[in-house]
Simulated assay, not measured.
Amino acid sequence: MTSDMAAQHDATVAMVAQRVAMGDAPHVPRPLDHLVVVPRRHVEAVQAELVAAGFRIDGVRRGLRRARVEFSRIDAADVETADAFTREILDVVGRHGGEYDGWAGYLAADPADD
């Protein structure tokens, strides 16, 4: 888990390449899942900022000191789009001392192939 944009970008490039090799059409929007870990005292503020950015909160697990926030939004899964939403998420969690664990989602077919 890292909140370093360069490390997130490198992970995204590798993941998008792997997904394309499995037949993904990265430009097709689909629900993408995300996870952040934040200090428990900031969890409500983080959720509010993510919702304001268009994300849907899917679950929150509160621990003694930290909370895990699972959330999603419909986005494309190409490198450019992923870098943009990653930067957006890192801005939110960075203000609250949290970390971003990354994104995942199902593979999407290109509708032009139908």
Rank of each mutant, 00 (worst) to 15 (best):
L64C: 07
I89F: 01
V79E: 15
A11D: 10
L35S: 06
E49H: 01
R95T: 03
V92E: 02
L35C: 09
D10L: 08
A109T: 06
V93D: 01
A52G: 10
A21T: 07
A48W: 03
A108V: 11
D75R: 13
R65Y: 05
D110N: 15
D83K: 01
G94L: 09
M15Q: 12
P29N: 03
D101I: 05
H9E: 11
H27A: 15
G105W: 04
A77H: 12
L107Y: 03
H9Y: 08
M15W: 12
S3V: 08
R56P: 01
L32R: 14
V20D: 04
R41Q: 11
G105T: 01
V60H: 02
S72R: 12
L50H: 05
D113Y: 01
V92T: 10
H96E: 00
V46T: 10
R65H: 13
M15I: 07
H42R: 13
D75F: 12
L64T: 15
W103S: 07
V16Q: 10
A14Y: 03
V13Y: 05
D113L: 15
D110L: 06
V16H: 10
H27S: 12
D58S: 11
V37R: 07
D58R: 14
V93G: 02
V60K: 05
V13Q: 00
R73P: 04
D10V: 07
G54Q: 09
A6Q: 12
E99H: 02
E49D: 14
